[in-house]
Design a protein around this nucleic acid. Structure first.
Lengths: 166, 166
DNA sequence: AATATAACCGAACCACATTCGATTGAAAAT
DNA sequence: ATTTTCAATCGAATGTGGTTCGGTTATATT
């Protein structure tokens, strides 16, 4: 094996394992991100390929982690969660931030990120009603090291989805 | 049919059609919200019911709209979207708000809500990089009637999911 | 030119979703 | 109290669709 082959192999590893997505892959991803219950027969019509070919591609996309999984989307209101709110929590210490991260296992919390900017932690909360939101807010505000909490209550939702391949 | 029967029928319509969720329903919903690819056999073990019984319940939950659908979750980074940002846009007119709602069909926009509080429109954006975010921001800031845009760039994401039945 | 590899196809297979008929239990009507 | 009705469940049978397989083509490499 010539020395240059080592380089080609390395490139192949990088080029092959991490997903290089062509337009067909993106079409499949878009279709499944919209509705994961579509059959391979249906997908095969969209991309003009056979069902096994689509199957191979989906398998590869899952193996490479481009498709992280499939989930059922539930109706928050029908579950009794009528109030969507975004919280921007300004913390003064790292220990306070850490305490906030523990709120990730609350059922009403849907997203939790640390952010740059004047707020430190960003939380998406879907509470049952204003009362339970108030309870939640009180709990956060009473934490040691929490400077301020700004709440943005959602009035209407026009779009809510995951990452798109387009 | 006695006059009182009309009332019972009305009550039945309300009690039966809109979902009244028992603990088994919630377990099923939780399992599917986490991983919608679970088989009915698997679900039947979780809730100690037969597969057809679980099937009936899932069918009912879909019919009632508690389960809105199933979607594939994609990896934003592997799609080339590395920068998650939350925007709070303060508008001075309704026409400006309407113009912002049109951004719902941009591929990098994942959520779009109107909110109460000082900001008017809330946008979750997953852009390829800082450059494309800047382009996006410029476009919004240059809209007639947009007073200010506050950006919160996500550093780390600790939780990101949909409504939970718990 | 020869070889290896990846992507694709049609056909066969098999697992799982779905349907069916029967049974139970609980509530409503007589 | 007895009968009727209805919803929920089950085991067994069915059928669609996911999955595997062997063979073919096209491309890239030696």
């Amino acid at each position: 094996m010539a020395p240059s082959d080592k380089e080609t192999d390395a490139i192949r590893q990088i080029k092959h394992h991490p997903a290089e997505l062509d337009s067909i892959d993106r079409k499949i991803l878009g279709a499944l991100a919209e509705d994961a219950s579509r059959s391979y027969a249906e997908l095969s019509k969209i991309v003009h390929l056979s069902a096994p070919a689509v199957h191979d591609r989906v398998k590869r996309l899952k193996r490479d982690g481009v498709i992280k999984g499939t989930v059922a989307i539930l109706d928050g209101c029908k579950l009794g969660r009528t109030l969507l709110t975004f919280l921007l929590v300004d913390t003064s210490s790292y220990s306070a931030t850490r305490k906030l991260l523990a709120f990730a296992d609350r059922p009403e919390v849907e997203e939790l990120h640390t952010v740059a900017g004047d707020g430190c932690v960003f939380i998406k909360v879907r509470a049952a009603n204003t009362e339970s939101l108030e309870d939640f807010l009180m709990e956060i505000q009473s934490l040691e090291g929490v400077r301020s909490v700004r709440s943005y209550i959602a009035l209407s939702t026009f779009l809510e989805r995951g990452p798109s391949p387009d």
